[in-house]
Structures are given as C-alpha cells and as structure tokens.
Computed example of a mutant assay.
Amino acid sequence: MTFSVRVVLSALGAAFTAYLAVGGMLWTTPVEFPLMLTASVVLFLATTWLCIFWNVRPADAPSDQAITAGLGGRAVLPAWAGVLALANVAIVPSATWYAAGEAARLESFATWSLGGIGALMAIVMVRRRPWVAWIGVALLAVEATLWIGIVNALALGVVGAVTWVGLAQLITRLLDSAARDTADLTELQRASSEWLASQEGRRRERREQVQRALSVAGPVLARTVETGGVLDDEERMEARLAEGRLRDDMRGPRLLDDRVRARLEAARRRGASVTVLDEGGLEGLDDDALAAIRGELAQALDDAHSDRLYIRTSPHEKTAVTVVGRSRLDDDPDGEEHVDLWHEISRPASDGTSPVRDGADA
C-alpha cells in the first residue's frame, strides 16, 4: 500500500511538472531563439524528474519521518542535486525570457518558468532541502524582478512559488510531527503490552506458588486441625519440612530444582537449619546457566554437614551463589559457631561455559 501511494504521488508530480513545461512550448508568437527555449524546458524537466525519482528509498528516512516516507516522502536530496536545482533557478528563467524576446516576455510561454521553478523548489523542500528551496525562491524573485519588473513578477508567479514552497514546508513538518506522535504511541503501546505480559506472568507465578503451597502444606494443616494441634514427632518433622519448603519457594525459587529440594530436605531431616535467599544477581541468565548453577549447588549441599546452612545469591560480577556452613565443635557444643563450609559458585561465562568452583570447602 505504501509503495502504491508513493508511486502515485511521484507520477502526479512528474505529470504536473510536465504540464508546466508544455506551457513553455506553446508559442503564441514567434520566439527569437527557439532552440534555447526548448533547451531550457528540457533542462527543467530533467532536473525536476531527477529530484523526484533519484535515491528514492523511504527506509533511509529517519524513524520520526515514517509517515512522510509512507506518503511519498523521500530520502534527503543529494547535495549535488540541490546545486543543480539552484543552477536551474539561475539558468531556466533567464534563458526563457531571453529566448522569447523583449516583446514576448509577458506571454504565458515566457512566464511558465515562474510556476515551473516554484514547483521544483517545492519538490526540493519535500526532499529535505529547505534552505536550498528558499534560496531558490529568493533568487527567482530577484531574477523575475530584473527581467519583467516587480509588479509583473508578483502577479505572474512569484507569489505562487512562495506559497507552494511554504505549504510544502508546512505539510512536511506536520507529517513529521504526526510521525513522531505515532512513534511515541507505538512505544507506549509496546511498553503497555510488555507490562501486561509481565503482570500475567506474575499472576501465573503466584497461582503456581499458591498451588504448590497447598500441595505442600495442605496435608500437614489438615492433620493439625484434625488432631487439634497435638502432633507426634514424625508429624512435627513433616510440618517443619513443609514450612522450610514453603520458605524456600518464596525466598529463592530460581535456585531450586528437584535435586536441590531433595538436598535441602535431607539437611533439615538431620537437624540442620537452612536459609535460602535470592537477593538478585541471577537476572538475565538462561535456563542452561541456571541449571548448571543448581547442579553445583546440589553437589555442594550433598557434601555439607554443617549445623546451619546459608545459601545466598550474589550480584557480584563473578560470583553467582555463595554457600556458607557454620557449626559448633563436637567437644564444645555450647561454644561459638565456626565456618566449616565456604563455597562460591561462579557466574557462567558469556560464552555459555559452565560455572567453575571458585571457593573451597572449609
């Protein structure tokens, strides 16, 4: 559709300038230099059509000129073509009036260049050369004044040329403004769609967490209500494990898979206190990188025998997860805890290689 509109507008521009040029060939009186007059018409048509069709690639236009490009807008006119257009302003009107002769300078075939050059400057304006267009109009006005006088110049085409160029600039600016507004609205729509998608993802995640919580804690809660809170040791252990699983799912879901959950439950069953915290730093990692981190975390937990385990993500550029274990000495159960495990899981390299172990078990 865009291509069809552009072709139609280009064809209309070429047809209109050809119509103006034909007016220069309809001689109602003999002319002194017919070849010069014909050459000026040919030069005008060649330059005008070159300005219409040369380097027509809407994709070259800036993004805020998308509508203009779609409605016949063009890439910026090359500088040499702008110079050629100004050369036409200097040559074509003077050659036309000189070739027509002094007696015929006010005839329509001698003043056609006022409308023709005005149309050419309007085309130059649409092709993003406003200074060239206005310089051309000013030069045309001075030239016409010198050849036929200021009154005749204003009456026979200079006012129309100024009007065409001014309207071309106004319409171009309005279209560019509309293009910018459209781009802003498109960006807002994209941001809105992304926000809605993120909200839907969060709702889905919350639903999954609620379902998981019900599946984990539901049987324990039902048993607690059934017994009035009187649970045996095994049931109390299951309640503590359910609480731990829920806390893990809420505080560090990106660190968990079936292997890690099994290692955490095993640590809690032997009496260890386990804390899992996702404090950021894993954003942007793909599924393979997260799987590698979870695999190493499961291995580290499999070798852990600490009384307290702290598993935290890290925003550090090299470290993804830190695992710390603290225990009391066997011969001093009431003493201070000491670190008996320190393990750092490195952030996966940008080339997708698996993380390597940076820390060491204490």
Rank of each mutant, 00 (worst) to 15 (best):
V8C: 06
T28W: 11
L37D: 04
F33N: 11
L20C: 02
R6A: 07
T17Q: 04
T28P: 04
T38C: 09
L50D: 12
S4Q: 10
L9G: 03
F3T: 11
G24R: 01
T38A: 15
A11M: 11
T38R: 13
F33T: 04
T29A: 11
M36E: 13
A15P: 02
A15V: 10
V41M: 09
G23S: 08
A15C: 10
V22N: 03
F53Q: 01
V8N: 06
T29F: 14
M25F: 07
V42M: 10
V31H: 06
G13A: 11
L9H: 01
L50S: 14
L45T: 01
F53T: 07
W27S: 09
G23F: 01
A14G: 06
L26T: 09
A14K: 00
L45E: 12
T29V: 08
V7Y: 07
T17A: 06
V31C: 15
P30E: 13
L26P: 00
S4L: 14
V31T: 13
G23Y: 02
V42A: 15
V7C: 04
L37W: 01
F33H: 15
F44Y: 15
F53S: 13
A39E: 03
W49P: 02
F33S: 10
S10K: 11
T48D: 09
A21G: 14
A15D: 09
V41I: 06
P30H: 13
T47F: 03
F16N: 05
L12H: 04
W54C: 05
A14I: 12
F53G: 09
A18W: 12
E32H: 12
C51S: 11
E32K: 08
F3G: 05
A15E: 06
V22L: 11
T29C: 02
A46W: 06
F3L: 12
W54D: 06
S4P: 02
V7S: 07
F16S: 13
P30S: 15
N55T: 06
A14E: 04
V42Q: 03
L9D: 01
M25N: 04
T17S: 14
V31F: 12
F44N: 08
A21W: 02
L26C: 05
F3M: 11
L12P: 00
W54G: 03
G24C: 12
V8E: 04
L43W: 06
A46Q: 04
C51R: 01
S40L: 07
G24V: 10
A14W: 00
T48I: 01
A15N: 02
T28N: 05
S4F: 13
G23N: 11
P30L: 10
T2H: 12
F16E: 09
V22A: 13
V7H: 07
V42R: 05
V5R: 14
V31R: 02
W27Q: 12
L37T: 09
T47M: 13
L43A: 15
P34D: 07
T47A: 15
V8S: 10
F33P: 00
M25T: 13
